[in-house]
């Protein structure tokens, strides 16, 4: 469990290094997929299957499709992968920074600090996060209303931003 946690956390950080090191957007989106998948792994390891499922479905099912579409929209003929020189430079610099900072804390990390807080959590039938999210329908009802209202507002924001533009590359026909 400790080793799996170590591996997952390491890939989590590595995935964001891949996003942040400025490759072409397709590859950055791929890095974000890796980050989201590893984030699901971290959440499962800490005993939150429902939140992990939500992250997996919403992120990989919803948002990354949209990002892939937008990457296709903003496509370029000569993409930059992680092999090209400026990207490699950024990656090396970011990784060196992460390793240096983690070396500061390395002494304080013992074996059980990698695991999660709930021991023997595998034996329990129900997890707290499912019930906690369900609280949004009772006690946190106003938060649900606000979120739904913001999603509606965003719909109008997007429509107003992209409507009525008659110049430029992508014309509204």
């Amino acid at each position: 469990m400790t080793f799996i946690m170590y591996l997952v956390l390491f890939s989590f950080v590595l995935g964001l290094v891949a996003v942040a090191s400025n490759p072409s957007p397709y590859f950055a989106a791929l890095g974000l997929v890796v980050v989201a998948g590893m984030g699901c792994g971290v959440l499962v390891g800490h005993g939150g299957p429902f939140l992990s499922l939500v992250l997996f479905l919403i992120y990989l099912g919803g948002m990354l499709v949209v990002f892939a579409y937008s990457a296709a929209l903003a496509a370029e003929p000569y993409p930059e992968t992680w092999g090209s020189r400026p990207v490699v430079t950024y990656m090396v610099v970011y990784l060196a920074g992460v390793v240096l900072v983690s070396a500061l804390f390395w002494g304080g990390w013992y074996e059980s600090s990698w695991g999660s807080a709930d021991e023997l959590g595998e034996f329990s039938m129900f997890r707290g996060d499912m019930a906690g999210v369900a609280l949004m329908y009772s006690a946190g009802g106003w938060m649900l209303v606000i979120s739904a209202w913001v999603l509606l507002l965003t719909l109008f924001v997007v429509l107003e931003l992209t409507r009525g533009l008659s110049r430029g590359a992508l014309r509204a026909v």
Binding site: L51, L55, A117, L135, L151
Partner: peptide, 21 residues
């Protein structure tokens, strides 16, 4: 999410969903 799970603070676990929205 990890704050919620580590502290077993069940009532706070809807906040990651709001953040996601």
């Amino acid at each position: 999410s990890l704050w919620t799970l580590q502290l077993d603070s069940t009532t706070f676990s809807s906040s990651p969903m709001l953040l996601l929205a």
